[in-house]
Design a protein around this nucleic acid. Structure first.
Length: 270
DNA sequence: AAATTCTCCTGAAGGC
DNA sequence: TGCCTTCAGGAGAATT
């Protein structure tokens, strides 16, 4: 499931192959994703040059002179650079063709999205109210502390809320809370300023380490079977219920919180 | 405003 | 072997 590091790794992987290139074709094989793929995309993108690829949260923003293509990978999506004539398989929903290469979206569970806007992209309804980027100066312990005052939601759900901070999915939320020594179920409003600082630091470290790890597998993006560095980072607790906590040896526990699996050590985290 | 629940979808895993 | 059930999970929409 692509989290922020995977999306950023994807962005860096595809950028050198298609940025500055001109669209020569658009193929929509399965328009039913999270929202319907706009049928007018082939017309909108005809002969347009891709200016840049940016990221906001887990959205990839492909900028053209007449608007922006928004891509989201949902939880099973991936993008690959392939020779333009490569046969499409099951779940290969969308191609952006650039001459002899193409950018292909593969997404078995179809939680991903391909959208278009001709407005300033930061004003798009899906982006306008997003919280800060976790690796930007706008995100800090002080920010988390101030925003969490008076709120009762569990800290794990708090940091997974895109209006609080973007790009912290279930896996890295668990890992960051473990690293920060904070129980996922702890009410966010009860965290001290110091613990908020520790949490913000843990989130930054987890994400930036994962991005660095992803960088080592960039070449995979030009291969059909490439796995773009998912989970390259060693996970301490995620998916490890019953295994020994790396810190104290007690078993890692699993609990469902807000319809998501939480993994934690009830001794090291409080 | 904040919190909670529902929803989309398919592949994997488990039970029999 | 095969069929059925259950589950995971990003995040917006709907509801409380």
């Amino acid at each position: 499931m692509p989290e922020l590091p995977e999306v950023e790794t994807t962005r860096r992987g595809i950028q050198p192959h298609i940025q500055g290139e001109r669209v020569t074709g658009v193929v929509i094989r399965q328009p039913r994703l999270r929202w319907p793929v706009p049928p007018e995309l082939p017309d909108l993108l005809r002969r347009r040059k891709l200016k840049s690829i940016d990221r906001r949260g887990k959205y990839l923003l492909l900028s053209f002179s007449n608007g922006t293509l928004l891509l989201h990978l949902g939880m099973s999506g991936s993008l690959h650079i392939l020779p333009a004539n490569t046969a499409a398989g099951r779940h290969d929903h969308f191609d952006l063709v650039f001459g002899k290469r193409c950018l292909r979206l593969h997404d078995p569970r179809r939680f991903g999205a391909v959208l278009w806007t001709d407005q300033p992209v930061e004003e798009h309804p899906l982006l306008a109210k997003l919280g800060p980027e976790p690796l930007s100066p706008d995100f800090s312990g002080d920010y988390l502390y101030r925003l969490s005052r008076g709120r009762k939601v569990a800290v794990k759900q708090f940091i997974m809320n895109g209006h609080v901070v973007v790009g912290v999915g279930n896996i890295y939320a668990n890992e960051a809370l473990y690293r920060a020594g904070i129980l996922p179920t702890r009410r966010c409003g009860s965290l001290s300023r110091k613990r908020c600082e520790r949490l913000a630091q843990a989130i930054r470290e987890i994400l930036s380490t994962a991005i660095e790890a992803g960088g080592t597998t960039l070449q995979d993006f030009v291969q059909a079977d490439g796995q773009p560095g998912y989970f390259a980072q060693e996970l301490q607790v995620y998916g490890r219920q019953g295994e020994a906590c790396p810190g104290c040896g007690r078993p890692v526990r699993q609990k469902t919180l807000g319809q998501r699996s939480s993994y934690y050590c009830s001794y090291c985290q409080h």
